[in-house]
Nucleic acid binder design. Structure first.
Lengths: 225, 225
DNA sequence: TCAAAAGTGTTCAGGGTACACCCATGG
DNA sequence: CCATGGGTGTACCCTGAACACTTTTGA
């Protein structure tokens, strides 16, 4: 069946992951310094080759689970990158994904053992391949989704203060937000509810802690920052 | 160099194109009835295999040029589709693109010779593979872009009436628009200018013809429907 | 007592939406 | 003369943006 397929070329196929997390309140990305050619010594995104028994989505999830120890990671496809010479080693087509990681819950030893480390987004080193374009397209998508869907909360701890949330939004959107307007929007988003607890670590006065209620979100679908 | 790549599998790689055009004022899609397995007899999108010397974008453009005789087609990547069993013939990863065609200028004989035909979007037959998902994602993207960028004009003739334009927007957005509000927005979009000519074919009174001015758009970047 | 972050309402302008009638002409 | 599509302006509402001071408490 499908004998004529055999007359066509086949290609290496990889996934590259733009892995984002909040490290000490700073939006950070998981990068690795390549230990071998091509692009040896340069920083790059975390990637892996697609295996025959897995879909491309599954390949991305596998890479992320191996790297962080987490399952159920929020991921979205960014797009396919297929310039002829994008990989100087050989022709490889890569599908980019972004992932939003709960930093507190991930396995730091796994990250280290993969030769990866967290780098603040504001302090990005030079990257190899077409990885800068993958990151740029990720941020475009994120900016849109962040204001329309509560996916930003995937980056925050289970309980978070509104200041933490606001500074995350400012980091992703790339500009400062008005505090009162921000809080007004959050109040209107019924899925973000106070836990009753107070965080005393980051301020003298203490700040109310909030959590995301997925059930309420499913019911109301109300979220707009 | 990159010897370790060789331990990995390689995959067939195709592009599938969601080709849209306005056939007699109706938003239509270019489909082909498959003459061979897999999915023989079913309708499907126009596609082709990626060649070793071309990027995935170039592959999509090549397929479209062969099919329509047009170069400089407006295309955008929709995304990669890579379920293991998405193609019952063999494992094929496909990158979907959409294309907006100026119906009047395309080569109908080429289309016919590729066994393709234009089908109204409101009258979509059952499609094979994961092509329905490709079309659905195309429409999501289109709805967003149509209101923020003047890409809808790629589908219209060089000169068009505001009624033609409005009915195109209604077809893509999936709901009726208010005529006065629509025309107000068009007037604010300086890049859409009257030609001074009158179309007498579609109405007794005659309707003013407009054209898109790319230079004005580059200057003002003003377009919001 | 003061530094540092938390918390809180109102006003205003502009954009979006709703809405109904006259016009020109071919048949 | 009438059916058909072309063309036009206004009122209201609501959302988004700007803006400053008080509270709490640890050091």
């Amino acid at each position: 069946m499908a004998e004529f397929y055999k007359s066509n070329h086949r290609y290496y196929l990889s996934v590259d992951c733009v892995v984002l997390g909040l490290n000490s309140g700073k939006l950070s990305i998981l990068l690795t310094r390549r230990a071998f050619a091509p692009e040896e010594g340069k920083w790059s995104l975390m990637g892996g080759f697609v295996q025959p028994d897995e879909s491309i989505d599954q390949a991305a999830k596998r890479v992320l689970t191996q790297l962080t120890g987490l399952s159920n990671i929020y991921m979205e496809q960014v797009g396919a990158f297929g310039e002829v010479d994008r990989d100087p080693g050989d022709r490889v087509i890569s599908i980019a994904y972004y992932a939003l990681i709960n930093f507190d819950e991930h396995d730091r030893r796994k990250v280290l053992s993969h030769n990866a480390c967290w780098v603040e987004m504001t302090d990005m080193p030079e990257l190899g391949f077409d990885h800068p374009a993958m990151i740029a397209r990720t941020l475009e998508k994120l900016r849109f989704r962040f204001v329309n869907e509560p996916i930003g909360l995937k980056l925050l701890p289970r309980q978070f203060t509104l200041s933490q949330m606001q500074s995350l939004y400012e980091a992703v959107l790339g500009h400062p937000l008005d505090k009162r307007n921000f809080r007004k929007r959050v109040q209107e988003a019924t899925c973000i509810e106070p836990t009753g607890e107070i965080d005393k670590l980051n301020s003298k006065r203490g700040a109310a802690l909030y959590r995301f209620n997925a059930k309420t979100y499913e019911r109301d679908k109300k979220f707009k920052i």
